[in-house]
């Protein structure tokens, strides 16, 4: 490669002209990669051009209503719900991903379900006002859901069944544990292996899955890459059993 490096010295003036002349599509590409909360609270107030670009519903495709972006020192639950509804309205059906910390309710889920037909990913963190039934009714409306993160929520066996059957494309599933009186060892493993063949990431806490359950999951979910069953006291981690399981995981990893 020839490269004669005769560089013109660039004056500050040139740089300024260059920067202010960023074309609209280039600015839109940047804005499209920002979170909904950034668009909401900052980016759209930069200048009139940015304000106009941010009117595009596609800029609101991802909404982060989490504590990192909206601290409780500044917002109460009522304001947070208002902001969330406002952002969902702005997305005009383009919403693909939403994150809600604490303030989620069944009614808010219904509001989102009615307006976000393209939703692929939802994370609900410690939303105590969301009921097991509310969650079931929500997931039933999203057969194309790919990520469901309710890592701090206990769910019933019925709900897990509804999730598994309603969302066959689920790639990531995180929940705390199954609760209820009708639960037996490996119920979860059975529901998961029979329905969730697209699963890549599974996380639960205090599961009743046993070693055989893990093997069933490895067989039923060939795409699985990440499995976290912490505090699963039904797992036998004694030396011989653990070794067998580890070998099985190794084979599975090699094969995949």
């Amino acid at each position: 490669m020839l490269c004669s490096c005769i560089m013109l010295s660039r004056s500050t003036k040139t740089t300024e002209t260059t920067l202010s002349d960023l074309p609209r599509d280039a600015i839109a590409s940047i804005l499209h990669k920002l979170s909904g909360s950034m668009i909401l609270t900052s980016a759209r107030y930069v200048c009139s051009l940015w304000w106009n670009i941010c009117k595009d519903p596609r800029m609101w495709h991802s909404i982060d209503m989490d504590i990192k972006h909206f601290s409780f020192a500044r917002f109460d639950f009522v304001s947070l719900e208002k902001i969330c509804r406002y952002s969902v309205d702005k997305s005009l059906g383009y919403l693909t991903r939403i994150n809600i910390d604490y303030f989620g309710t069944d009614i808010l889920l219904q509001y989102i379900a009615a307006r976000a037909g393209q939703l692929r990913s939802i994370r609900l963190y410690k939303c105590e006002e969301i009921s097991d039934k509310g969650l079931r009714e929500f997931v039933m409306k999203f057969p194309q859901l790919e990520e469901l993160d309710i890592a701090f929520t206990n769910i019933s066996k019925e709900s897990l069944e509804v999730i598994a059957k309603s969302c066959p494309l689920l790639k990531t599933l995180k929940y705390r544990s199954l609760v209820g009186e009708d639960i037996e060892e490996n119920d979860e493993a059975l529901i998961i292996t029979n329905n969730m063949h697209e699963l890549r990431h599974l996380e639960t806490y205090g599961t009743m899955i046993t070693n055989n359950g893990i093997i069933a999951i490895l067989n039923g979910c060939p795409l699985l890459q990440y499995l976290d069953l912490r505090s699963g006291f039904h797992l036998d981690m004694s030396r011989g059993k653990f070794y067998g399981l580890a070998m099985r995981c190794y084979d599975w990893k090699e094969a995949s």
Partner: peptide
């Protein structure tokens, strides 16, 4: 890469970063 630098920053930061004057 640019979005990562301005994410979670204030309006003033973004204006300064892009050398944009508010025209509101």
């Amino acid at each position: 890469a640019i979005a990562a630098e301005i994410e979670n920053q204030s309006v003033e930061f973004v204006r300064d970063y892009f050398q944009i004057e508010s025209d509101f």
